[in-house]
Simulated assay, not measured.
Amino acid sequence: MNILLWHVHGSWTTSFVQGKHRYLVPVNDARDEWGRGRARTFDWPDTVEELPLDRIRDVDVAIAQRPAELDLIPPHVPVIYVEHNTPKGDVPATRHPLADRDDLLIAHVTDFNELFWDCGGTRTTVVDHGVGEPAARWTGDLDRLAIVTNEPVRRGRVTGTDLFGRFTGAAPVDVFGMGVTGLTGVTTYEDLPQQAMHAELARRRAYLHLCRWTSLGLSLIEAMRMGMPVIALATTEAVAAVPPDAGILSTRVDTLVEAARWLIDEPAEAARLGERARQVATTRYGLDRFLADWDRLLEEESCASR
């Protein structure tokens, strides 16, 4: 099957393109948000081809991730819109921009997303995230805490940036991602290639997930798959992704700070939680299950349009 999709979300796309299809990704000279082409810091297979949009032909299904993409998709091509994000604004009453449409399907990446978005009469489904086996495996030999987040300076309270400093009394905090330069009181690692970042993460004692309002960070699942113990705010989909025996979740920040101190002082307990986190993430968020779910959905939408 020939699948058109834009390079929007590097981690999600890295999992998606591991399937059995041909993936056609628009590219332009600027390699901007409308034509990034193939990823440069993620490992994508040769079945991902970058082409100028006007040269992409014979599309069987299009994957849209932003409303403006819909006008760029050839007519009569079935569309699945992947909703990565939680709603913004007046959340209980937030209407999805593609609500009440009969020409596409919205695939939410979490049950939380589907619950909180008002999609009206548009058909919806949920395909849980899937993450491949990371090359790195947790050792926790550094008495440090790790965070992975993008644009924490700009996004502020959304990513829990205001909370980072509260954990530095328990251990040094290392922040990885894009747009992390400028944070104070923590050590930052700007936009490392994925494998290099995983290797660094695996040495930290525990993973902090401090997002107040996000669908479900793929970096959280990647950390769990490496066997990292998790300390997280009990918000959005995290409460379903991390069971009590795989990490510590709370909306009380002091409880999480205390948990960080505990794991720094008790590496054996960190290893116990991390091993359970790995088991849970491998079972629920494995790549085989993810790709099988998407194959089924792609086939259903392709057949329905014939």
Score class of each variant (00 low, 15 high):
residue 164 F to S: 02
residue 162 D to T: 02
residue 8 V to G: 00
residue 49 E to I: 15
residue 76 H to T: 08
residue 7 H to M: 13
residue 69 E to V: 02
residue 20 K to E: 11
residue 85 N to R: 04
residue 102 D to Y: 05
residue 61 V to I: 15
residue 177 G to T: 05
residue 155 R to C: 08
residue 264 I to R: 11
residue 48 V to C: 14
residue 27 V to L: 11
residue 193 P to F: 01
residue 10 G to C: 03
residue 218 L to E: 02
residue 68 A to W: 02
residue 129 H to D: 13
residue 305 S to C: 11
residue 156 G to K: 07
residue 93 A to V: 02
residue 243 P to F: 10
residue 24 L to T: 04
residue 24 L to W: 02
residue 91 V to F: 12
residue 126 V to C: 08
residue 22 R to V: 13
residue 98 L to D: 02
residue 43 D to S: 15
residue 277 A to F: 00
residue 305 S to T: 00
residue 288 D to Q: 14
residue 233 L to D: 00
residue 273 L to V: 02
residue 92 P to Y: 05
residue 56 I to R: 05
residue 261 R to A: 10
residue 58 D to Q: 04
residue 162 D to Q: 07
residue 108 H to N: 14
residue 134 P to F: 10
residue 294 W to R: 08
residue 82 V to H: 09
residue 290 F to G: 03
residue 35 G to Y: 03
residue 83 E to W: 00
residue 160 G to H: 04
residue 130 G to V: 04
residue 293 D to K: 01
residue 86 T to Q: 14
residue 292 A to Q: 12
residue 272 R to I: 03
residue 267 P to G: 11
residue 19 G to N: 02
residue 183 L to P: 07
residue 285 Y to M: 08
residue 186 V to E: 00
residue 277 A to D: 05
residue 61 V to L: 15
residue 294 W to M: 12
residue 170 A to S: 06
